[in-house]
Nucleic acid binder design. Sequence first.
DNA 1: TTCTTTATTTTACGCGCGTCAAAAAAGAAA
DNA 2: TTTCTTTTTTGACGCGCGTAAAATAAAGAA
Lengths: 345, 345
Amino acid sequence: MAMTRQRIRNMEEFAAISGISRPTVSKYFHDPESVRPSSRQRIEAALERYDYRPNVFAMNQNRKLTKNVGIVVPYLTDPFFAEIARTIEMRCVEAGFQPSLFSGYGSPEQEVAILDTLRSLKPAGVLLAPLGRASDKRAIERFCAEVPTVLFDSNMEGIGEAFVGSDNFSFVMQTVEYLCRTGEPPSFFEMKNPANPNANKRRAAYLTMMERQGIEPHIIQIDGTGWAFEEIGKQGALKVLAEKGLRTDTILCSNDRLAIGFLVGAFELGLKVGRSKGCNLRLASHDDHPFSRFTCPPLTTAAHDYASVSEGAVKTLIDLIEAGGKLPNRTEIVYPARLIMRESA
Amino acid sequence: MAMTRQRIRNMEEFAAISGISRPTVSKYFHDPESVRPSSRQRIEAALERYDYRPNVFAMNQNRKLTKNVGIVVPYLTDPFFAEIARTIEMRCVEAGFQPSLFSGYGSPEQEVAILDTLRSLKPAGVLLAPLGRASDKRAIERFCAEVPTVLFDSNMEGIGEAFVGSDNFSFVMQTVEYLCRTGEPPSFFEMKNPANPNANKRRAAYLTMMERQGIEPHIIQIDGTGWAFEEIGKQGALKVLAEKGLRTDTILCSNDRLAIGFLVGAFELGLKVGRSKGCNLRLASHDDHPFSRFTCPPLTTAAHDYASVSEGAVKTLIDLIEAGGKLPNRTEIVYPARLIMRESA
DNA sequence: TTCTTTATTTTACGCGCGTCAAAAAAGAAA
DNA sequence: TTTCTTTTTTGACGCGCGTAAAATAAAGAA
């Protein structure tokens, strides 16, 4: 029990109390094995009596290589990003780094403000999931030139030392193949102006897949801006269903959040979604959003390999850091999706 | 366009370039109005040519009162906390503070680690939503004694300078009253060992409300630990419904996440939830979780006054900071809930 | 026991900036 | 123009810690 007989203000005070010089104490905190056992004992004895922890930010002030890692996501309120941020954070901690999490909540200005703050943090490296189209590319490029950065989730050509994400084609390939095999071919449901580059790749993949199967593609693009995807999906569904704008009974949403909204729209109109008999619609989607298993019906979707992406991203970043911040050539790692069949399709 | 002809490393370099002494530049960044117009012009001219930003962490190193604010939530992957963190963050930025967001993801050890990191940040104040029962009360108490802290969402008696949250009784009062008035009285559905103190208050409120109406209360407590409330709710629903453990057709969940799980369980068993004719169950809940309007059917729930809570928390913290970190007596502000009638009940 | 060699510790300085007291400049009054 | 005030600016030091080089202690060889 580290009792506080007296508050220790800094390493100097703590060193005085433990009877060791401050630099040695500093070495101890950097690596307890690096000091003589006798010193170590005295330090640890003092640590028992007075609880003291070095100031992380003062540590990084003058350190060549810090243990800080910045994690930047576009929108933390989206459980998809929250979940991937969580796993990445935990892996960073396991690897002995101290992660700091940031979200710009959809604002490009906030995004560059975060990068500026991050510079002050002198991170050993940064894991950045950029906003996408709305991002200030110049600012991000400049940042990546200064700080070892690995992009994840959404790629920006040539920016950052590496990219780790999911293989969008693999997502769409599996869902389209599954839907075509087990029923009518799907229409593709998406936002007209998606902010995220993955959306474009998924559309392209849909077109390719339909062409391969010799089926005329059908894309439904709905209006809406911002990050309220569920609401956008719902409104889109109400509109499309009212206009009878469907060609088949099967819909493939670009992502789960749109699908979640679509489900509500369909529900409101009294339509039954599912693959069983008596259902009016089949609905599938992509991402395996944390909530997609708790919708009614649960969503059939192509799942990110969350574990691999987060592990891969952190591993790539650590390699990058150990390589001194530069990689011989920009690597792109993408993990395939896994089809998850639930009730909705 | 701040072009970088030459990277500015620190304020010294920047001061040299702009032809002003460093301390004056420092003053400028603290308050541009505080320096002579001629100096200001020269600084801003230099700012146009060389983009430089002071190191935030070095700034705070030696500052009497920083502009840092720490925000700590128990589980950021829960959209409820993500949403409240987002609004709080934005209000802090508006008020001229720099928020840093932390989540312990349910781990008490992580929670105290975060508090230790926060000490290093020398925050002007901290907004803390503690884990609850699992928290290391001693550690939190010590922290609050050192750093001006306002608790939010979940209260801990006597800890922190103030508490801002929602009035649990108001939540339950409204849902119980509504359910009783429009149909059969509800059974109360909750976890057996809730980690969050709000859960206990809600149970107590349910008992009080039922007593007032002269109706025998009926509480269903389900097993489960951790933060996977939806799954717990689903399993609980499957069990309760299979055992026909309901007394009426109406269920009131302690919180929306349990309710979301309950909905899936009911769906799986082919039960229709809703207030319209032909439905088997009515289900209501508390929180107005961001997803509760996108469930099928959308959830009837008592909504947190998100805006008031976040505004009140930030305002209280700023008052606390301006009062020098101590308030004459510990204040507790709770905002009433607002009943939101949707399809589920 | 004495001299090397090597492992530790200490000395001294730096990181990027805040802040106070002293000095200089600007402005007002004479 | 000179003198006195009132800003501004600047010099000097400190924050809490990292780190290279110098000094010391421990260990081994002679």
